[in-house]
Amino acid sequence: MKETHIAEVIESNTTEMIAQCRDLHCSPPFGSFVKVKPTSTSVEGAGFLIYGLVFNVMTNSIEPNRRAVAYGKTEEELRNEQPQIFELLKTEFQAHLVGYQDQTGIKQILPSQPPRIHSFVYTCSLEEVREFTRQSDYLHTLFTISRVPPDELIIATIRNSLEAHAEDAHQYLIQVGKELSRLLREDYDRLSSILRRIAP
């Protein structure tokens, strides 16, 4: 079955990218894995399959200089009365680049080139998530993101990936927990707070 994309890259740099969703309010959830397929295999340096982690979702006006205004009506009333205003809105998300896949497998390091603009973005399947989260080295880069509380991002990420490890969920939590414990060696309270909140 051919996968359908959910968004398109509109801005990217070495560590992160911004993608615009195909439909309004249809962003992948906070803390979920997305992938960017190489635009064309024939283009030299078009790169590999790149994995990103959604850490920020925003919906705003298409026009940078115009903001949406409050109408005092429900969304349903608005859709009936003024459907055009929804056409002037867009949903975007920011994703942190956490790794890529080349011929030898998944690498949890930054790709040498960021995703190209207008590449399509897809959600990751459960198998892909399971494959990617087999190692937990990516976790430490999440602590470097300053725009969202990193603990929240980590909790969301682990909770989202739990479904992919449904068979050995507890073992997976221990493995991730040990990695966190290494990263947060000096901060036992923070570690225990995270662990309390990721437990299903």
């Binding site: 939590l173 221990i174 927990g177 414990s181 060696r185 309270d189 662990l195």
Partner: peptide, 26 residues
């Protein structure tokens, strides 16, 4: 233990996940 804080607030009996996570690392 690597962190004396753990000794002040040891994981409770119910918190098996925390116990298992700490064991062997901290």
């Amino acid at each position: 233990v690597t962190n004396p804080q753990i000794l002040t607030h040891p994981p409770s009996r119910e918190n098996t996940l925390l116990r298992q996570v700490l064991s062997g690392t901290s």
